[in-house]
Structures are given as C-alpha cells and as structure tokens.
C-alpha cells in the first residue's frame, strides 16, 4: 500500500514543485492520457454549459472538459502560468485560487464541478464540512460533481446521489472516479 504524505504541503512547496514544466509528467505518461479519456468520456454524457475544474494543475484535463465555458483553478501560480501557456482554448478561464479561496472569486454557479487530486489529508486537513459547503454553494441544483482521487487516500463522500464510481489503474495506484448528482 502506497503511503500518503501526511505533512501539510504549503503553497510555496507546491509552487516550487511546479517551477519546471509538467512536473507530474502528465503529457508523457500513457496512464494520464487514459485517465483524461475516462474522465472526459464520463462528462460527455451530460450536456454541460459551465464547468469548474478545481485542482486543474497545468490544465492537462481542463482542456478536454466538454463544456461551453470552463473555469479552471489551482493553488499554484506556476501551474496556472503553465496552463495558460499551453492552453489552446479561449473558453477556459484559468485562475489561481485554492478551494477555500473560491468564494472570494464570485464565480457564480456551475452545472459541473470536477475535483482532481485535491481532497487529500495533506491539502485539506480536517475541513471536509467546509469543503462540502463551498462546493454546494457553487454547484447548481441538478449539477454533476466528479471527483477523481487515489482510491486509498480518498476522504470525501459528498451529500449527493452517487450515481457512478469507476476504478482504474493509475501509475502505481488505483484511481477512483466518483460522479455525483446534486
């Protein structure tokens, strides 16, 4: 079993990690292309107008989200800079913000929210009730919430109808994709 990092990761550490392009190697790893295809094909089932991608990193998945308008956020300035540089889509609005800073952006509501690799102990500590609250304030009634996390480290169970779970091999882990309907 892979050990989850326990120590809190600061924004500075995350920025330092993103100081080189594609630090996770998304663009060179077949597991990530497969991961993106699984997420995007799941989201294609819904007629999405406005989507929010929380924890977008360098925009590897954001670019494929099948919505007319996408707002993609990440805590790291460096990751957002890279995402903007790589982006070929004018319909994606990349913003720097942590999940907890989202209320200050006044983003309005979304019919889809994608959260990737954010709800881990080292990032969110003991704050799940607030995360549920913040996501609920942003997700429109009937909206779709997709969460993608390493299965063993997954913490959240949002108070919506869990309409689909998919597990797939991802690098040395098993990834869990959960799709909820509000």
């Amino acid at each position: 079993m892979a050990m989850m990092p326990k120590r809190r990761q600061s924004k500075l550490q995350i920025d330092s990690f993103y100081s080189k392009d594609d630090p996770w190697g998304y663009f060179t790893n077949e597991h990530d292309y497969r991961r993106r295809e699984i997420i995007v094909s799941e989201l294609r089932k819904y007629n999405l107008i406005r989507a929010l991608d929380i924890g977008c990193g360098n925009g590897f998945v954001s670019e494929g989200i099948p919505a007319k308008n996408v707002v993609a956020v990440d805590i790291s300035d460096a990751a957002i800079e890279e995402a903007r540089r790589r982006s070929g889509s004018a319909s994606i609005d990349y913003r720097r913000a942590s999940l907890f800073e989202l209320p200050s952006l006044d983003l309005g509501s979304f019919d889809c929210i994608l959260i990737t690799g954010v709800i881990y102990e080292q990032y969110i500590g003991k704050s799940l009730p607030l995360i549920y609250q913040l996501v609920d304030e942003l997700l429109a009634p009937g909206g779709v919430l997709a969460c993608v996390h390493i299965d063993e480290w997954s913490l959240a169970r949002f108070p919506y109808a869990l309409i689909k779970t998919t597990r797939y091999k991802y690098r040395q882990y098993t990834h869990l994709l959960e799709v909820y309907r509000k």
């Binding site: 500590g125 003991k126 009730p129 607030l130």
Partner: peptide, 14 residues
C-alpha cells in the same frame, strides 16, 4: 485552520 498544531488553533471540522 485545516489543522491545529497547538491549543490556540481550532480545526475547521471542530
């Protein structure tokens, strides 16, 4: 905050 390293910090869940 999300963690409480000393007694002067209350975590968000609490």
């Amino acid at each position: 905050d999300i963690r409480s390293p000393t007694m002067w910090w209350v975590d968000v869940s609490s």
